[in-house]
Design a protein around this nucleic acid. Structure first.
Length: 220
DNA sequence: CCAGACGTTGTT
DNA sequence: GTCTGG
DNA sequence: CCAGACGTTGTT
DNA sequence: GTCTGG
């Protein structure tokens, strides 16, 4: 799940939404069809301040020899995140929030087709997903690459007809708990229920080469 | 001790 | 880096 | 996540 | 079938 989503259009609005005092961020072109390895926005409190940053989607472990598998670790199962070698340190030390307009899930009818849906929280500017951050030093160039993964959980009943997994969502009242709470307190957010809406969208979204606001709009 | 893995999804 | 398997 | 490629030799 | 690119 959650291998494609729609990015907020304006990082300044992201900063205001999260009351982030500082931004280390470059605006990226509007992207309604974010795919693994692309640049996204995250919010964290690794320093004393709440920051909005650009990172690449797809976690590259600190010990990785190269970044060739960056597209593999785009999700981290909440059920095992505290134990998995690639995720446990980031889970304890560097959690982040990942703002989205909403995300996509595909339904696979028996005819083998792939029907895309856009899923979002109604009456909210952004849907906020739980994430973890990592930093990897490219041994060839010495450059640091910051990456992130989206934490996942069982889907709530309202979207069971589409897919059985979904991102862990974080409401405003819980932002600080996810960013700065103990791992135990953060884990409690895995169980929360949320109000979500969904609608069918164009097959155009299936190809990551397509983009545009129309991708998130409902089709009959 | 060293070598090799380290992840998720979905589908079969 | 750290854990598991051999 | 889905879509699309998946190869070599030799010649321009 | 499996891997890479987006």
């Amino acid at each position: 799940m959650c291998g494609r989503y729609a990015l907020p259009e304006d990082p300044d609005r992201v900063g205001l939404f999260f009351d982030a005092s500082t931004r280390i961020v470059d605006a990226v072109p509007p992207n309604f069809n974010v795919s693994p390895t692309q640049t996204i926005y995250v919010v964290d409190e690794m320093t004393d301040e709440r920051l909005v940053r650009n990172v690449a989607w797809g976690l590259v472990p600190r010990w990785a020899k190269d970044s060739s598998r960056a597209a593999s670790l785009i999700n981290a199962r909440s059920e095992s995140i505290a134990e998995k070698p690639s995720f446990r340190e980031p889970f304890v030390q560097s959690r982040c929030l990942i703002p989205a307009l909403g995300w996509y899930e595909w339904n696979r009818p028996e005819d083998g087709s792939k029907i895309p849906y856009f899923i979002f929280q109604p009456n909210q500017d952004f849907t906020v997903m739980a994430g973890i951050l990592e930093a990897w030093k490219n041994p060839e160039t010495g450059q640091w690459l910051r990456t992130a993964a989206v934490v996942t959980c069982d889907a709530s009943k309202s979207m069971e007809h589409i897919h059985d997994r979904m991102p862990v969502l974080v409401e405003k009242a819980d932002w600080s708990t996810w960013l700065k709470g103990t791992p135990e307190a953060a884990s409690a957010l895995f169980m929360k229920e949320h109000e979500i809406s969904s609608h069918r969208v164009s097959l155009q979204v299936n190809s990551s080469r397509n983009n545009g606001r129309e991708l998130i709009e409902a089709v009959a």
